[in-house]
Design a protein around this nucleic acid. Structure first.
Lengths: 235, 235
DNA sequence: ATAAAATTTTACAAATTCGTGACAATAACA
DNA sequence: TGTTATTGTCACGAATTTGTAAAATTTTAT
């Protein structure tokens, strides 16, 4: 799942910097110096997000964003506008156009990445909403429910009650079954970069998840890979 | 694996606080009050990360970061700058210098640690994830699993359990099959430069790997090249 | 054939890593 | 407001891994 981001920015240094930070975050960056170039790119590659930086005179930028929002093909692409603090008129204009986010300069790379991710996350609710069925478990992100199918008996699937964190953990593990995740990766995905938790804390949540699963007889689904991390596996 | 962090900060209280929090997180903290002192430390000990805090007049801090990023020896050291929200010019300047992260004061110790760890984590290159199939063995880095296909029988491939080091060793050998690796090379690739181990230790791990493989009938895959080192070969 | 060199085994203590139960702090809720 | 989940941490013991030293074996050179 590669995510492509179009940066419209004429200042080369800023363009370069943003692009670099995006790459570092595992996102693909396309760069355009002006509106025409941007349009040409959009014709070929529909980006997942557009960042409109310091291009063109102010109102033109808003106009550019507006056009994207009007045209059917590009309508659903989220837009982030970078704007200077003093250009209040523009900020207000953007509110009218209903851009997804406005980041006021100056900003840190970290902030930029964080907000890009936030916007992308918001956009992908359906993607995360798929029901996952694995190893006799059914997890439904939409209803936030987990059911366990017990083979021997013909009983209705038993509902499992999980705390919020345990649910997210199970969800992530199931969505990436078989793959081993280090504690650092789990921490990144479930808690994010800004929150500091002890690595042992993850063990504790793994245990909580396990004990809950054990109650319905699902014993070996969450496995330890010693020295590395954890894995959801159907064997 | 000890990680050393250099803190450049003239405010004693802040210095102390940061240093304390780093220690609690298992990181080694070196402190410098000013640029000269920092340079002197860097000459002796190459830190894994530099935190530039409230030292010197503003632009000098950026200059300090820039110098580190220019000099070859220190180029790859990630830098985190602590900056006050109102010093916009500096934040922008840092973007240009391509500092790894800018943390805006005030910040919580938790946030600091989290972001330090995030930066350090990002620095690690991602391991190759390709599945390697060789000589009746299948090694999958993503799931961290090794399977052995036994020819005679039509059985399902048997799973092999390896310790972390044995796994890395096998992975490396398989990824560079047929090529002979000296013990020094293996040591570099699997343990890194800063860890001292006896050369004999590698022999021991080779043996451990061999015995595990022998259990599933894979006997001659890891071969000795006398006087040189070891090799993974399919004959 | 014998000594020297290199490698394979074996055995072991120290260090890590993981699972667990208990605990205070915080958040959510009625 | 009080009551009930949830969160994150800690400390302990058990199990595993790690690195080493030394003995045993094999290979090479003299």
């Amino acid at each position: 799942m590669t995510i492509t981001i179009l940066i419209v920015e004429d200042e080369p240094i800023l363009q370069e910097t943003i692009s670099l930070n995006l790459k570092r975050a595992g996102l693909i960056a396309l760069c355009a110096d002006n509106a025409e170039q941007a349009n040409r790119i959009i014709i070929n590659v529909l980006p997942d997000l557009v960042i409109i930086g310091g291009v063109l005179p102010n109102m033109d930028r808003v106009e550019f964003a507006r056009r994207l929002k009007i045209e059917e093909r590009t309508q659903s692409i989220p837009i982030i506008i970078l704007t200077a603090r003093d250009q209040e008129s523009e900020i207000i204009a953007n509110l009218v156009v209903e851009v997804e986010d406005v980041i006021i300069k100056p900003f840190s790379p970290h902030e930029l990445i964080a907000r890009i991710k936030a916007v992308l996350r918001r956009r992908l609710p359906e993607m995360a909403e798929e029901i996952i069925q694995l190893g006799g478990l059914k997890l439904d992100p939409a209803t936030h429910r987990v059911h366990a199918y017990i083979k021997d008996k013909q009983l209705e699937p038993a509902e499992i009650t999980l705390g919020p964190t345990e649910f997210r953990l199970l969800h992530f593990l199931m969505a990436n079954k078989e793959r081993v995740h280090t504690r650092a990766q789990l921490q990144d995905r479930l808690w994010g970069d800004h929150v500091f938790i002890e690595e042992r804390t993850i063990d504790v949540y793994i245990r909580r998840l396990r004990t809950t699963l054990k109650v319905v007889g699902k014993e070996n689904l969450v496995q330890t890979v010693r020295g590395i991390g954890y894995r959801f596996s159907v064997e």
